[in-house]
Design a protein around this nucleic acid. Structure first.
Lengths: 189, 189
DNA sequence: CGAGACTTTGAGTGTGCTCAACAATGGTGG
DNA sequence: CCACCATTGTTGAGCACACTCAAAGTCTCG
């Protein structure tokens, strides 16, 4: 499912924004020969169409059922803090893409998505379980890797007892600190 | 030379911004083991310290003599369009880091910097000459490559007659369309 | 049951990295 | 002025990580 990608004009501030209240959206760009890069994964609470000028053509793709609410643009403080969040995400992702190894990228992605999409836990002692809305191919296009490399990292983490999954999209975190160490580049693999 | 990296608090909009009127600044982040990623290169006209919350610790480093002016934060439209520009830059850079090859990255960087830092041309027929404010190492940290790879790409472009330089920081564009084709992934090398 | 989409796994290759030596430049002090 | 050192850039050899190509397995859906 493809959403209209332009929510605002080329300059000036937009008159209203759209807030994603539920679901998951991928914003991506594609090179001439088909190489695709997912620039941001938008989760609940984030604004959609923040700075979509007309220079950068961006494709927005829903990865689940989504619910979007209109938010008035004159609530400047809310808009500003949402932009802050988007900036921080993309800045962190820049470091990931420029300087992290494949396992580090996958670990970072798992932790990031788990924080943003984990289901409410039933008991405090249960391991966090969450739904990757992205398939292996989408993860690859987000993390700047190939599909196969992503898959290999997942099985590696599974064999190492850091995560578990039966269906490839439903992941259980078994050892969050170890994953965090890998994501930060402090552990080997 | 290191600037103070926080120009705004953690949330809400800042009361004033700083506009770079002259010079060049690199914004970077560093991993625990020293790997560095330059997240953005700020040129004349751009805002400094846009979304520097306290979560993402960002280092700002001047690469030349700089002149910075205060700009009032209540000029919302100006601020907003500057944020737009910053977003577009970092989004394009995300594609570069995630999906482009080394020569494509270097060609993109040369073109980007030439647009933002080229000296006024004396005659219309002269080839554009500009100053890379970044050294090879900084370019590497910006483009997610190693210093040596950046250097090799430069000499490759030089040998191919696409650019020229005697001092490694002062570059002349000899064949902009060919560079553009490489940057876009439409030409082999 | 077969078609299609997605994932996993393997084998081999290549791009870009690491390690290393050398050259060019500029600043400092004898 | 030149020797000395630090810094930066260039170039080469070899390697490794991640990619490409390929095949087989799983699941859903018609």
């Amino acid at each position: 499912m493809i959403l209209a990608s332009r929510a605002t004009g080329s300059e000036g501030r937009p008159h209203h924004q759209f807030r994603l209240s539920e679901g998951c959206i991928a914003l991506s760009q594609t090179l001439a020969d088909g190489r695709r890069q997912i620039v941001d994964i938008v989760g609940p609470g984030a604004l959609v169409g923040i700075v979509l000028g007309d220079k950068n053509r961006m494709t927005a793709e829903t990865l689940s059922y989504c619910h979007i609410e209109r938010q008035h643009g004159d609530d400047v403080d809310k808009t500003y803090s949402a932009i802050c969040e988007a900036m921080k995400r993309i800045e962190a992702h820049t470091v990931l893409l420029g300087r992290k190894t494949a396992p580090e990228r996958v670990a970072s992605a798992i932790l990031d998505l788990s924080e943003r999409f984990s289901r409410p836990q039933r008991a405090h002692f249960e391991s966090p379980v969450f739904n990757l809305y992205l398939g292996r191919g989408d993860l690859a296009d987000w993390l700047g890797l190939s599909l196969e490399t992503v898959s290999r990292c997942f099985t590696r983490f599974k064999r190492a007892g850091l995560i578990d999954f039966d269906e490839p999209e439903i992941v259980t975190l078994l050892n969050t600190p170890a994953l965090q160490a890998i994501a930060d580049g402090a552990a080997s693999a």
